[in-house]
Simulated scan of single mutants.
Amino acid sequence: MIGIIMGSKSDLPVMQEAADMLDELGVKYEITIVSAHRTPERMYEYAKGAHKRGIKAIIAGAGGAAHLPGMVASLTPLPVIGVPVKSRNSIDGWDSVLSILQMPGGVPVATVALDGAKNAGILAAQIVGSADQVILQNLIDYKEGLKNKVLKSAEELENR
Score class of each variant (00 low, 15 high):
Ala131Val: 08
Ala117Arg: 00
Lys86Ser: 15
Pro40Asp: 04
Ser99Gly: 10
Thr39Cys: 11
Gly3Ala: 14
Ser99Leu: 03
Ser87Lys: 01
Gly49Gln: 15
Val85Met: 08
Val109Asp: 00
Lys147Met: 05
Glu155Trp: 15
Val14Pro: 03
Ala131Gly: 12
Pro108Cys: 13
Pro79Asp: 13
Asp132Arg: 10
Lys52Ser: 08
Met15Tyr: 02
Met43Phe: 10
Ile135Cys: 07
Asn159Tyr: 13
Val83Trp: 00
Val107Ala: 09
Asn89Asp: 15
Ala110Asp: 07
Asp132Gly: 15
Val107Gly: 15
Asp20Thr: 08
Asn159Pro: 10
Ala65Asp: 03
Ala50Gln: 07
Ser10Ile: 02
Pro108Val: 06
Ile135Thr: 06
Ile81Pro: 02
Ile58Leu: 02
Met43His: 11
Asp23Cys: 02
Lys143Trp: 11
Gly70Val: 05
Ala60Gly: 01
Leu22Ser: 10
Thr39Trp: 01
Gly116Thr: 04
Leu136Ser: 10
Leu123Val: 11
Met21Ser: 03
Ser153Gly: 13
Ser87Ile: 02
Val97Cys: 11
Asp95Leu: 10
Val150Trp: 15
Ala66Asp: 03
Ala120Met: 08
Lys28Asn: 11
Ala124Met: 04
Glu45Trp: 09
Val128Leu: 11
Val85Leu: 03
Ser8Met: 07
Ala18Asp: 03
Ala154His: 03
Lys143Gly: 14
Leu151Arg: 12
Ala117Ser: 01
Asp20Val: 04
Glu17Cys: 08
Gly49Pro: 14
Lys9Gly: 07
Ser74Thr: 11
Asp20Gly: 08
Gly26Glu: 01
Arg160Pro: 14
Glu158Asn: 13
Gly70Cys: 04
Val134Arg: 11
Lys48Met: 05
Ala117Asp: 00
Ala125Pro: 06
Val83Ala: 06
Pro84Tyr: 03
Val134Phe: 14
Leu146His: 14
Gly93Cys: 06
Leu136Gly: 14
Leu22Lys: 03
Val83Ser: 02
Leu22Glu: 05
Lys56Leu: 12
Thr76Glu: 02
Ala57Trp: 02
Val27Pro: 06
